[in-house]
């Protein structure tokens, strides 16, 4: 259990298993869960709310409330755009969920961006700003 005690998302210490796993942004989870909810609705005549667990229900409400992008095409574009920047899955999804406005905010929210020399100096800041700008464009034309 010693590995678990050291976990710290700010340094991307989230355990081997989760580091390799696919992270999902809230908007992606919303698509998956809504699809599943509809399936349940079709299969049973009754109220689907009584068929799903409380965890499912709460998660669905949460991701619906905090999804930045509603349109499935936009969601795909966001992932494509972010994946061009050599981000870890966890970083990618944090940025996609929180949509920071400035590179300063991005570094504060995802401190692990500092590591690995990916975004150093002014060139690094510009790169992040460009990335955030791309995201806001997707949002605008959604």
């Amino acid at each position: 259990m010693s590995g678990e005690e050291e976990e710290n998302a700010a340094e991307l210490k989230i355990g081997e298993e989760f580091l390799k796993a696919k992270c999902l942004m809230n908007c992606e989870v919303a698509i998956i869960l809504e699809h599943k909810y509809e399936q349940i609705q079709h299969m049973s005549d009754g109220d689907p709310a009584s068929q799903v667990s409380q965890v499912f229900e709460k998660s669905l409400q949460y991701v619906k409330r905090f999804s930045r992008y509603k349109n499935p095409d936009a969601v795909r574009q966001v992932r494509e755009t972010l994946s061009r920047y050599g981000l870890a899955e966890f970083e990618l999804c944090t940025l996609g969920n929180l949509c920071p406005d400035t590179s300063g905010e991005a570094f504060a929210l995802v401190p692990s961006l500092h590591s690995g020399g990916r975004f150093q100096g002014d060139a690094g800041n510009d790169k992040i700003d460009k990335m955030l700008n791309d995201l806001s464009l997707i949002k605008k034309f959604e």
Partner: peptide
């Protein structure tokens, strides 16, 4: 499966 796992150091939005 889809799991929700909170991590120390993670920043997220909540109600």
């Amino acid at each position: 499966c889809v799991v929700f796992r909170p991590f120390k150091g993670e920043i997220l939005e909540a109600v």
